[in-house]
Nucleic acid binder design. Structure first.
Lengths: 327, 327
DNA sequence: AGTTAAAATGACAACGCTGTCAATCTTCTA
DNA sequence: TAGAAGATTGACAGCGTTGTCATTTTAACT
């Protein structure tokens, strides 16, 4: 029995021949180790959690699927945990989940991954976790974080607009609390600065990553001064860009002839607007797969050395029809 | 110890006083029963599965959250299982999941809930399940199915268009394999028939529930004969309606002045098109909550009599700006 | 071949609960 | 107030694994 356990867990010191015999029987009987028993008996469990507070269904599904695909490979089970940081019980909730399911580790996604109250709690509980974060990679934290370089992506998308001849470029920010907001904003500012076109605070609108705030943002930016000053708007995400598009239509503005609009994230509905949105593509499923792999190296210890884990991703620009040369 | 177990499981024959004492201690110690141990020891486990094969992220998230909220209340854990019926291993996959996690039951969502190969397999394994189905409620199966009356909703949305004066109404179907497609189509036909406006097969396009097929559908329907014959298009879902909207723009058709377009499902992006879509609202989170409750009555047996479970839902029409009177 | 160290396997308890069945306590009746 | 019936509680095994440690087998030496 113990030998079968060794084979299943790929422990060393099992003779090749024994290994083969066991595996043959495993296949023949279609043996599936009982997760509950493994979780109960073992030192570390085979269950990990995915924590998110994100209204973007596409994002969440991508993250889930990425983590899930690795879980399947490694024999782990996934417990999903949507929550709301507006909720006072959030931390207690997470704690409860960890205890109930005896989680081996957690994947934290933005914006929760930015909350030190959560990471502190996890540190106290001595639970492994991996954070998916908007930000530029640092030398430390390489083994705890997966970075999404929104700064660079925003820099590039702004550069794209600049190269099309736009000078007065509006920016619709997401929620202030989100790290991605400041990262994207800084990338935008840096690109402008590098083109000797300093950012104008009148061109920056504080939104909320929602369609509605995109609508408001465009209305505000375009109303603030004469309409023609701004010839391009960079949406902090696709949803707000779609909102800006919507507002522009209401105002009778032609896209992209009179105004270029770009999004961020390349979520499916950036392809379902008219015209389709130029945006920055973020490979969320790949990102979350790497997050899961990184987590597994920690929970399983040295058992699986997974060396080619990428810990930094830069979204790549996808040029579509919502951006065009300044006329 | 056993008494604590009784209290936790709300078993009868525990004295009120004992119950209170135990609960006090439970609260004080913040005791969380270990799920793995419960799953291992008990007759039925505390884990249920949610199986889906649906490209609509909003739908999936709603279903997840609904089931999850009930799971939390009842102390169950949820294992999500996205899969693809195009995949030959699908059934084996589900079987494996059931065995590994020792599932107490499953919630099946369309289109998988329509596959008899799956339900047969589950019957053989003697696993409880609840199916969420597109269809009109029948007297049997009240305890195994949650019906979403797409027929009636399509009837009503078609009636809405008819009452606006439209006579030639196009219909863009979803995948043929989906029950919802035929239900919605029949509702559409029935409404037409009741208004002495027999359905014209030239006005029906076989789509795929995707944005792209909505684009194709509108192009085809509007090109087939002279553009003005059709004054309204009913999209089989919001995505196709958005596609139809997109195509109409490309063709320079004004919505809703020249053409009314309606969707189905009321997914978030039906609010993010321009103009916003008239659609049929489906309360997926509520539906999935009831599905979960129905499942729990089966897995927990008579222990929790949950009598006010609704097993039939009819999406309600939401009139927005994409539909208007025929000019 | 005989010895020793290392590799491989096996025996057994333990993980934290629940089901079964026995023991105890309450309540009610005569 | 004894006795019976029923309500409540408790003792104990067992769920299917893994960790620990003992035992056996193999390999590597004189």
């Amino acid at each position: 029995m113990k030998t079968v356990s060794r084979v299943i867990n790929k422990e060393p010191s099992v003779r090749k021949k024994t290994y083969d015999v066991v595996m043959e029987a495993v296949n023949e009987l279609n043996y599936q180790p009982n997760l509950a028993a493994r979780n109960l008996a073992g030192t570390s469990s085979f269950t990990v959690g995915l924590v998110y507070d994100n209204p973007n269904a596409y994002y969440v599904i991508d993250m889930q699927n990425g983590v899930l695909s690795r879980c399947k490979d490694e024999g782990y089970e996934l417990v999903i945990h949507p929550c709301s940081y507006a909720d006072d019980n959030m931390e207690q909730d997470i704690k409860t989940m960890i205890k109930r399911s005896r989680l081996a580790g957690l994947v934290l996604t933005p914006p929760l991954s930015e909350q030190s109250s959560i990471t502190n709690m996890l540190d106290e509980l001595n639970i492994h976790y991996v954070r998916v974060l908007s930000g530029r990679p640092t030398d430390e934290d390489q083994d705890t974080c997966i970075y999404v370089n929104d700064y660079k992506a925003a820099y590039e998308i702004t550069s794209h607009l600049l190269s099309l001849g736009h000078k007065n470029i509006g920016f619709i920010c997401g929620d202030k609390e989100h790290k991605s907001t400041s990262e994207r904003l800084e990338g935008y500012k840096a690109a402008l600065a590098d083109h000797d076109t300093p950012a104008n605070s009148d061109f920056i609108y504080d939104g909320k990553y929602s369609f509605e705030s995109g609508v408001e943002g465009a209305k505000t930016l375009l109303a603030n001064d004469n309409k023609l000053a701004i010839s391009a708007i960079l949406g902090g995400n696709d949803e707000m860009a779609a909102g800006a598009l919507f507002a522009s239509r209401l105002m009778g503005i032609q896209i992209p002839e009179q105004l270029s609009i770009t999004g961020f994230e390349n979520s499916p509905f950036s392809r379902q607007t008219w015209p389709k949105l130029t945006t920055a593509h973020q490979e969320n499923d790949v990102i979350s797969q790497h997050a899961a792999r990184l987590l597994f190296t920690k929970t399983r210890g040295a058992r699986n050395q997974d060396k080619d884990i990428i810990t930094s991703f830069t979204p790549s620009i996808v040029v579509r029809d919502s951006s065009g040369p300044k006329l």
